[in-house]
């Protein structure tokens, strides 16, 4: 009897407190509340597990050649992972083309481990049933650029060309709905339903968006790569599917990454 009275009192007090809290926060937007929530759970990003699993995959001998990826050159020299993602996509001399992280990982898995590229490209994204190796590896590599400033180069003519092509793909309207990337991502301060949309032509928005991918999606229980992000955007654009780590997705990544230059890389992120 006594106990139940006590708990009732506590309940009422709790309600009163939350009412005051809400009243005081009158000017706080939903986005700010989401930011507060992110801050609170920032030490609890399950992407950490994928970083750990990715590091294991990186170091473990595998493939027909039974070799590890420890000699993979991500642009800063053989085996250098630290800071590599903050400078990607970039031009690679050995393949004579611009590559994003996933494309480069595919090259390394192929040349060092002997895994056919088609086999890798057939399992590009993690699913509920099984994590994708290349996606998990990517989570490890990006984690090694945390806190490092984005500095993606457009000095090489092919890098500059990839950026220019990426910009054109960004504005390319097609499909039954006439959508392009720019339909949703070329205006500031707009949203779909309650989801705020970054204006990827503007440095501030592009930086916040790009540096938070790859990210663990709480609603999906999976860490999603940047290639996945682009893939799912095209789905919603009512486009056909972009081929994994193709020239089209690399160019679009280049456009997003260069626009994010100057910001500290902050991924892997945590999203709804």
């Amino acid at each position: 009897m006594n106990t139940s009275n006590v708990s009732k009192v506590v309940m009422l007090l709790a309600l009163a407190t939350s009412y005051v809290a809400i009243a005081a926060e009158g000017g706080v937007s939903d986005s700010d509340r989401i930011a507060q929530y992110r801050e609170m759970i920032s030490d609890g990003n399950p992407a950490d597990f994928d970083e750990m699993a990715g590091e294991e995959l990186w170091k473990k001998p595998g493939g027909p050649k039974n070799a590890s990826l420890e000699k993979c050159d991500l642009g800063k020299g053989s085996g250098v992972v630290k800071g590599a993602y903050a400078e990607m996509p970039r031009y690679f001399k050995d393949t004579d083309r611009v590559q994003d992280l996933e494309s480069r990982l595919m090259t390394c898995m192929n040349t060092l481990q002997g895994i056919p590229e088609e086999e890798i490209a057939a399992k590009p994204f993690s699913t509920e049933q099984k994590n994708s190796d290349i996606s998990t590896l990517a989570t490890y590599v990006v984690g090694q650029s945390k806190g490092i400033k984005m500095a993606v180069s457009v000095k090489h003519p092919k890098e500059k060309e990839a950026y220019e092509i990426g910009k054109r793909i960004f504005n390319y309207r097609a499909g039954p709905y006439d959508f392009s990337c720019s339909t949703c991502h070329a205006t500031s301060g707009v949203r779909i339903r309650m989801q705020d949309l970054p204006n990827l032509n503007v440095a501030k928005d592009a930086q916040a968006a790009y540096t938070s991918w790859p990210a663990y999606r709480v609603s999906q229980g999976l860490t999603r790569s940047f290639e996945w992000r682009l893939n799912d955007c095209f789905r919603q654009q009512r486009f056909p599917e972009p081929k994994f780590a193709s020239e089209a997705t690399i160019a679009l990544t280049m456009y997003s990454a260069v626009n994010a230059n100057g910001a500290e890389y902050a991924g892997p992120g945590l999203k709804r």
């Binding site: 092509i165 390319y172 097609a174 095209f234 009512r238 056909p240 972009p242 193709s246």
Partner: peptide, 24 residues
């Protein structure tokens, strides 16, 4: 670059479900 972009888009998208490649 316009022409190159068009060629890349034609090559790098493929059928998936009801979304056929010719949508580009």
């Amino acid at each position: 670059l316009d022409a190159k972009t068009a060629a890349i888009i034609k090559r790098d998208f493929r059928d998936k479900g009801i979304a056929k490649a010719d949508r580009v």
